[in-house]
Design a protein around this nucleic acid. Structure first.
Length: 887
RNA sequence: GCCGGAGUGGCGGAAUGGCAGACGCGAUGGACUCAAAAUCCAUUGUCCUCACGGGCGUGUGGGUUCGACUCCCUCCUCCGGCACCA
């Protein structure tokens, strides 16, 4: 059957691209400019591809093809983020090894992606579950373990440099825990003590902290993985409980992560999400003395962003978990104890749903350092242990929460900020002043009359001078909980010694392979599944002192070394995705995670374009930036930020405008679309739907629309026997239209405006349809412009027209350039406005000057009618655009 | 509550201070056909008008400008994120 037949051509060209290695990247060709265009690699789920995947992937594929055509050396890889919970849960349910399901899913995903004709260089495919890959994930973990953050330099440095500073006395050795050894001398510390000390500095460390334990999943989760008190995966309730876990000190990089954002070409909303998550607040720490010493406590330090309201602090509140709450006044002890129990019993979810204030008086008092007033100390769960110091000064006149609490428990309220311009006695009325607004300080002897910003500065300076407070910056960002009680993840390259400390395995011991387990189910306790690998857990190691830090080598000779236990937790899914964009550059390199010369060329200014879902805003995208900065500090990568430009593709909704879901029955399967309309129609429609970053509904009629467009193009180029029907010469108006298209399509692709680029192609094709047709060279030029969008179609049509003269692939033709002279019409019709309203149009030469254009306008009958004989008092002329006459 | 984004025909959307609604979908009428599908042609913001033509029109109200979908302010609605973070 003649006509455009997608089924007949797509597989054919896909096979040719693969066999001729048309899209293979030469990583060593550094003479040309590079372009790195990256997709967020998929988690190969059992469901296969959904229509959201090809959206972003088509966008990047268009860019990759366009950039290649423009002479760039393009990196466009794909891989698999294949560790993770769903694979493991599926495996448990169906009693198959996750390795098997993962392999199966990967094969399915690869087939589906290849059926869409993406121009990936499949020779650089990575799989995070492959030991050849995760060997380097573990290697980077060792770098984190071997790095400490130097606050003064704001930089991660090797641990041995820290030890050096301790040894030389350049940095005093702090008191850690209840250590009794002599202070100030590194060599007098025992190896155990040395390791304990260093653990306080490493970017990867173990700590006993309250964590998000999810009984439903049998694992702990990072803060970023908990949404409204439930697990992001599966939606199971999450509870807080203290557990010893691996943490990554991402908080050390809070300021760098924040500061780096401004230079990134990311959407404002995404940057704002990261800013909010990092949550920087400037303020002051203020120390209040207790009126009576209680337990170990003689004073209480709070953090406030409003030190200017100190004179209005009428009470203090500590979190229920604050250790001062364990030493209340004896007569209040029972009540405080009871409240602590109550607070501990409330889940995060309950606390979020019910924010009414509860609390108990400790019976203790503090002295407000600015006015020496004695104020009561309360316990309440509206103060969080995890932020600031876990204690606040309450200023009920100017804080909504404190106000609610004070009202409920009858605590005094003193106004210390007056609305701006309304200061002074009698002038201030609290009712017309929103609680947390800025204004003018009142009732505050040190700062009366000052506007809030100045008041903050001044009182902070006074506090510092009097040694009762200091300027402080606080972040909401918490350290990253990095261990999971799962089987299907990267093992940690760490062993635990009998003294309770841990030691890194030597790099030469990598990869630490996941042990083969028949039974990899969760244990039902907090013990990770790897605890079932009895033969694997217990090892003997030789611990080497490298002049400060230690590494362990497995002793397999038997009998030697000291006994040790392997770390049994595994890394979270994010570990593998933190750095995959680096491994793509040379995935077969067995000596480096990436060789420096390769890294420098491809990543010197970061990934040029990264497209993916917004769901990773504070997860992958934050974690990755953190790792990259550490690698940068350690001299292992050459840029400070990994992803220079990032775009989030918008969600594709079902045809009914609702989110696609099985239960709604509105899910569109890309396989069906390809079977029916072909991969090119799928690609084109997903790009034609609307702006890439916008949420938009699917439309089957819309797919048919682009399918019809391709049919029309075919009929413009081929006769009823599919033979080319080329004219000997392309008419001038078609030629002009073609050059307009080249210009517009190029500009639109550059700004990722694919829908308008397609519209321009449709317009051009309509023009051809209305005319006598087009000659072969111009037809090929048009197909070249179409190729990034509909590569199979363009390839087939190109080969039919070019015949024996054709290159292997149309993608090897350079991007056409346009002739600017052709874009200009000799005469242009410009609008004429009278008093800003469009009244007529006149034809003038395209280069007409003001006098000519205005004269033409004035001569126009329609214009004269509206001028009504009056002489315009103002004439506005925009060359080649318009004339406006004002009377 | 706070932060970010967006409001344009029946629908998806276009227009980077200069002719609002490109392109596509849908709809209506017509051609082809025994008929249908496919295809092709025409019309398609709205109101007034037989028509020529004109009025109105980009969520609301104001402002800047010769000129505003576009810039500024007010309010409304929707979407997304965060949320007792002191």
């Amino acid at each position: 059957m003649p006509g455009y037949n997608h089924a007949a051509i797509e597989k054919k060209w896909q096979a040719l691209w693969a066999s001729h290695k048309v899209f293979t990247t030469n990583i060593h060709d550094h003479a040309r400019p590079k372009y790195y265009v990256l997709d967020m690699f998929p988690y190969p789920s059992g469901q296969g591809l959904h229509v959201g995947h090809p959206e972003g992937y088509t966008a990047t594929d268009i860019i990759a093809r366009y950039k290649r055509a423009n002479g760039f050396n393009v990196m466009h890889p794909m891989g698999w983020d294949a560790f993770g919970l769903p694979a493991e849960q599926y495996a448990i349910k169906n009693n198959v090894h996750p390795r098997e399901t993962t392999a199966k899913n990967i094969n399915r995903f690869r087939e589906q992606l290849q059926a869409i004709g993406f121009s990936y260089d499949w020779s650089r495919e990575v799989d995070t579950t492959d030991p050849r890959y995760y060997r380097w994930t573990q290697w980077i973990f060792l770098k984190l373990y071997d790095t400490w953050f130097d606050e003064s330099q704001q930089k991660g440095r090797p641990i041995r440099e820290l030890v050096e500073e301790f040894k030389t006395g350049q940095r005093p050795i702090p008191q850690i825990g209840n250590r009794q050894s002599a202070m100030g001398n590194w060599d007098s510390l025992s190896p155990t003590e040395q390791r304990q000390l260093l653990a306080h500095y490493r970017l990867a460390y173990e700590a006993e902290v309250p964590v998000n334990w999810c009984p439903g999943l049998g694992t702990v989760l990072a803060n970023e993985e908990v949404i409204d008190g439930k697990s992001e995966v599966g939606g199971f309730p999450v509870e807080r409980r203290p557990m010893k876990q691996w943490m990554l000190r991402i908080t050390a990089y809070a300021q760098r992560l924040l500061a780096g954002l401004h230079k990134l070409d990311w959407s404002d909303s995404l940057k704002e999400m990261q800013r909010n998550w990092i949550g920087r607040s400037e303020g002051a720490e203020v120390t209040f003395k207790l009126s009576v010493v209680s337990g170990q406590w003689s004073e209480l330090t709070v953090f406030t962003t409003r030190p200017d309201t100190l004179f209005g602090a009428t009470y203090m509140v500590i979190a229920p978990e604050h250790s001062l709450a364990n030493s209340p006044a004896p007569e209040q002890a029972a009540e405080v104890r009871k409240y602590q129990k109550y607070a501990a019993s409330r889940s995060d979810r309950e606390r979020q749903e019910d924010t009414s204030k509860t609390g108990a008086f400790t019976g203790l008092y503090a002295i407000n350092p600015v006015n020496n007033k004695q104020i009561p100390i309360w316990v309440s769960d509206y103060v969080l242990m995890g932020y600031g110091t876990g204690a606040i000064m309450a200023v009920p006149a100017h804080d909504q929460r404190d106000h609610e609490f004070a009202t409920k428990f009858n605590l005094p309220i003193i106004q210390v900020v007056a609305p701006r311009g309304n200061a002074g006695p009698g002038g201030a009325s609290p009712e017309d002043h929103a609680l947390e607004e800025e204004g003018i300080a009142i009732n505050s002897p040190w700062i009366d009359g000052l506007p809030t910003p100045e008041a903050k500065k001044k009182i902070t300076a006074i506090l510092e001078e009097k040694n009762i407070g200091k300027k402080t910056i606080n972040y909401k960002l918490r350290d990253w909980l990095f261990s999971r009680q799962r089987y299907w993840g990267e093992p940690f390259p760490i062993v635990h010694l009998a003294d309770g400390t841990n030691v890194a395995l030597s790099e030469s011991e990598l990869p630490v392979k996941l042990p083969e387990l028949e039974d990899f189910k969760p244990t039902g306790t907090i013990d990770p599944p790897l605890s079932k690998a009895k033969d694997w857990v217990n090892v003997r190691v030789d611990v080497k002192d490298l002049g400060g830090d230690y590494v362990a080598h497995l002793d397999t000779s038997g009998g030697g070394g000291q006994p040790a236990r392997r770390e049994l937790n595994t890394m979270p899914q994010w570990a593998g995705s933190c750095w995959y964009y680096l491994r793509y550059l040379d995935p077969s390199d067995e000596d480096n995670f990436v060789a420096p010369t390769i890294e420098k060329y491809w990543m010197g200014n970061g990934v040029d374009l990264y497209v993916g879902g917004v769901e990773h805003a504070v997860l992958h995208l934050l974690y990755s930036r953190f790792w990259h900065k550490v690698l940068f500090d350690r001299g292992l990568v050459s840029s400070d930020e990994p992803f220079r430009k990032l775009v989030n593709q918008g969600l594709i909704l079902g045809e009914d405008g609702q989110k696609m879901s099985k239960s709604r029955g509105n899910v569109i399967n890309p396989d069906d679309v390809i079977a029916h309309y072909g991969a090119d129609s799928l690609r084109m429609f997903e790009m034609f739907m609307g702006p890439l970053d916008q949420v938009k509904p699917w439309s089957t009629a819309g797919v048919e629309g682009v399918y019809r467009f391709l049919q029309r193009v075919w009929r413009n180029l081929f006769d009823e026997n599919d033979a080319p029907k080329m004219r000997p010469e392309t008419p001038p108006d078609i030629l002009r239209g073609l050059h307009r298209l080249i210009k517009k399509a190029g500009e639109d692709i550059e700004r990722l405006s694919f829908n308008t680029a397609i519209a321009a192609m449709m317009e051009f094709n309509n023009l051809v349809a209305k005319s006598e047709g087009i000659a072969a060279p111009e037809a090929i030029t048009f197909l070249r412009v179409l190729e990034p969008f509909a590569p199979h179609f363009a390839e087939e049509a190109y080969h039919r027209i070019a015949g024996a003269a054709a290159k292997t692939s149309i993608s090897q033709l350079p991007w056409p350039s346009y002739d600017a002279a052709l874009l200009i019409d000799a005469t242009v019709e410009i609008p004429v406005q009278v008093n800003g309203k469009l009244r007529s149009r006149v034809s003038v030469p395209n280069d007409a000057d003001e006098a000519t254009a205005v004269a033409a306008a004035l001569a126009d009958a329609e214009v004269q009618k509206f001028l009504a004989g009056k002489e315009p008092r103002k004439k506005i002329f925009v060359k080649g655009r318009m004339v406006n006459l004002v009377v």
